[in-house]
């Protein structure tokens, strides 16, 4: 009995009734973060990149707290939790930027107080990345991505981060199954008219991963350049890639 009891309590999908996982993920969504660019710095590329790296560092702290709310994540071993986050952290950051930018016209809403158009991105040396992220924004905008789908996709990106050296692949698979099932349940209930919608959403994930890899590569070269101050967590995760 105790074994069964424990299994029922820790089986993530035991709560996947009436989209409870989706509701839970909505509730776990981190609060807004403001960029607060330093008014004392001259308006140049260094200021833009410093602002973005500082914002990313603070968002990362929140995203780590968020990950712990994913049903089943905290039952993974600490090394496995670390490996998933080390692989998916940039995808999670980017998906949040993309979702915030859905209502903006060809601009990236890094934060409510930090919106970047192509001209500003070019000045910061981020034009290529800006264009790549906007491709994702347009894709999700044309699909009418909903908040429920966004939070679930973000959980799928973490669970599906394809990290090497996972200790307990079965536990990670359970996490993947749970969030995948949550998305399918949600689409069945809310988008019955389009039976392929869950698949269409999942098919956006390769572009997210590709864009995140570009972003990591770009910020790694900025790090090597050494002109932009970066906080320790951001550096630690850049080094993990």
């Amino acid at each position: 009995f105790p074994l069964n009891h424990k299994k029922a309590r820790t089986d993530p999908c035991s709560i996947n009734v009436e989209n409870k996982v989706v509701s839970h993920l909505l509730g776990a969504e981190p609060e807004k973060v403001f960029a607060m660019p330093d008014p004392a710095l001259p308006d140049d590329d260094i200021k833009a990149l410093t602002t973005l790296c500082d914002l990313a560092d603070r968002e990362l702290v929140l995203n780590i707290g968020w990950a712990k709310h994913l049903p089943g994540f905290s039952s993974l071993s600490l090394p496995d939790q670390m490996r998933l986050l080390q692989s998916a952290w940039m995808e999670i950051l980017l998906l949040r930027v993309v979702f915030r930018s859905l209502d903006a016209e060809d601009k990236l809403v890094f934060a409510e107080d930090y919106v970047m158009d192509a001209g500003q991105a070019k000045l910061a040396g981020l034009l290529e990345l800006h264009t790549a992220i906007l491709q994702l924004v347009r894709k999700y905008r044309s699909m009418g991505l909903e908040r429920e789908e966004f939070v679930t996709l973000k959980a799928i990106a973490l669970a599906n981060s394809d990290s090497m050296h996972i200790e307990d692949m079965e536990a990670v698979q359970r996490l993947q199954d749970c969030v995948h099932e949550a998305l399918q349940d949600y689409e069945r209930t809310h988008h019955g008219e389009d039976p392929r919608r869950a698949g269409k959403l999942i098919m956006t994930l390769p572009l997210l991963r590709q864009t995140a890899a570009k972003a990591v590569q770009h910020f790694c070269s900025i790090k090597q350049d050494g002109r932009v101050p970066m906080h320790k967590l951001f550096l630690e995760l850049l080094e993990a890639n």
């Binding site: 776990a28 780590i64 707290g65 712990k68 709310h69 049903p71 090394p79 670390m82 967590l233 630690e236």
Partner: peptide
Amino acid sequence: KEKHKILHRLLQNSTSPVDL
């Protein structure tokens, strides 16, 4: 592990998960 000490510490210390 030493290399990733902040991530390690945050995972151990950040907000406890809701008991599901």
